[in-house]
Amino acid sequence: MSVAARAASLLVAFVAVVGLGVFVALYYLGGASALPTVHYAASGGQVNVTLQEDPQNNSASKPDWVSYYVQDPGGGQWVHTTLFSVPANTKVNVTIYGYDGCTPLRNNFFSQVQGTIGNTVTVSQFDQHGKEYVTGQTTSVINAWANCNAGHTFAIPGMNLYVPVASPNAQLSANNLCSSSPCTPQGNPYARETFSFMSPAHGGVFRWQCLIPCGGGYLDGNGGPMQTLGYMMGEMDVVSS
């Protein structure tokens, strides 16, 4: 093989390797950037964040994964993402609609509400007919082992914030759960939970996750949706002014 041919072969191989690397990087980076971030702005020193957790989702690739949704404060539509931003040093009022059924915690310690203002949450539960069978109950523990009580958790370990999220009761969890996402209150049993916390004084990205092993079908229940951004794993971007 001539020197020119060898040089050409080397060049082609080099371009192929570099091209493959760029493709892989763009594929993953592009995939990550495709996940939208919902931005919440403060009003009167407070910001209202609204989430829901569903037994399934409306994605094309993993429709059977449990998933969170974030409500866009502008139009009110539900966005299939787990990325949202809040201002720093602001009271964050969170509302979570729990449409998924109950699952026991691996460590029942996380039945305790920690890191919210007052270390409590307020829970209301509704059946599929819209009847409110638990009305505005404020509690510091939602015991995930006592009955069918908790569906998931909303936990930001970096802020020491651990919140069990209530679910519809056992009978409703077994038979009548919402089957089309994003879920709506009409015709579906759900729990509505509210709590507040102060966002950190300085900016930064805070990982949040579910601590109930709800990744059904995966080893120890922690694979799949449990570790994937856009499903049960998310990030809260705290933006300093």
């Binding site: 037994p55 109950c102 026991p104 059904g216």
Partner: peptide, 24 residues
């Protein structure tokens, strides 16, 4: 044991399905 407690788990099913580990 949790896998025997049916009806209390979420829509995803038990968190320790029989035959774990499996792929979905």
């Amino acid at each position: 044991a949790l896998p025997k407690v049916d009806g209390i788990t979420g829509a995803a099913g038990y968190y320790y399905p029989p035959g774990d580990p499996v792929t979905p």
